[in-house]
Design a protein around this nucleic acid. Structure first.
Lengths: 188, 188
DNA sequence: TTCGTCATGTAATGGGTTACATGATTAC
DNA sequence: GTAATCATGTAACCCATTACATGACGAA
């Protein structure tokens, strides 16, 4: 997921590591921040795979060792790879974590794949809701656990409704093709 | 967290590994299941630490090797340790994961610590909500990211409200001491 | 007799975190 | 000149997962 997120952000514009991390937090929620201990090694990995290139701007050669600000950008292969990643709905796309990340790059995802992801995610959340309901009716919980389960259940319900709205709006867009200036498509 | 959960379940009744896993799923939500690959090594670890004892029931010695069903139970030191864990609100208690686990054993937690945890968690969620709000107003997001952020924001709001209700009900209980047959405490 | 599920375990791996270490740049 | 924050990195660790391997027991 970190990989996808990095490729996605770099596909918008070149950036260095530190900035990447901030944008990552902004996009995925600041409480969901990656540490440098995972960010930099991943950048190294992506570079070794040939998906991003690392150019440190030429240093003013005044003799002293300067710490370079390394700017990363997608290579041609990187763009291709990113495109492939966006082209199918991997299973991890359906869990909480992965879904959020995928959604962040929905604008660059085909309408078809968007729909598969949204419906897949909805199905997943419906299953969770079902399981929750089962375990709730089977065993009598204590007061606190019951509260927690109820809250979890309601959260699932809300997410299902939210996803249904997104799906409906996708379908509407599919019928009334989106103009450059997107307006809410009316039902008729 | 797995440790706390295992100790907690075993404090209710002795159990073997397989059953433990099922009860874990039932309590923490079936979609949040631990694998055997983490469960059994952890049991080993807890046993080595002296917190649980492992007694495999005597086998019918008919010569053939039988696979034993190993039943685990808390030792005296285990009970003590579990009590200590419940006695203070460690930081990991405040994140999503840990909070759910702690709540599962609230019935065995002192009213004081319960309150600290609930208020700590509320504060945490409020911070998340705040951060979300910040990043939302700072940068213009695309349609999908905006949708996601809005949904996340509403979820936080709901959780804060839910926690506030729990807190209020705790306070009510503190004033009107809870009878065996607990009834909802009226505001006056 | 075979299938499902109960039951226990290991090895390799994954995907991150924390703590540490260093140095440059900016604002006061 | 000093504090904050920008900026890059490494090593050790943690907590789990996946895939694999084994075997008992009951029901169809």
């Amino acid at each position: 997921m970190l990989e996808l997120a990095i490729l996605g952000l770099l596909s918008e514009s070149p950036m260095h590591g530190y900035e990447l991390r901030k944008r990552l937090s902004a996009t995925l929620g600041s409480f969901r921040a990656f540490s440098y201990g995972s960010l930099y090694p991943t950048l190294r990995k992506l570079r070794d795979a040939g998906w991003i290139s690392e150019d440190e701007p030429e240093l003013p050669t005044d003799g002293v060792s300067r710490r370079a600000k390394r700017v990363y950008q997608l290579t041609a292969e990187g763009k291709e790879h990113f495109g492939e990643l966006l082209a199918d709905a991997q299973p991890e796309t359906l869990d909480d974590e992965g879904f959020g990340t995928r959604l962040a790059f929905f604008a660059q995802t085909s309408a078809e794949v968007r729909m598969r992801i949204l419906e897949g995610r909805r199905r997943r959340v419906e299953e969770e809701r079902h399981d929750l309901h089962q375990s709730q009716s089977r065993s009598k919980l204590d007061r606190y656990t019951e509260q927690l389960q109820n809250h979890a259940l309601e959260s699932r319900d809300r997410e299902v409704r939210w996803l249904s709205e997104l799906i409906a709006s996708e379908r509407a867009d599919a019928e009334a093709p989106p103009k450059t200036k997107s307006k809410q498509a009316p039902a008729t």
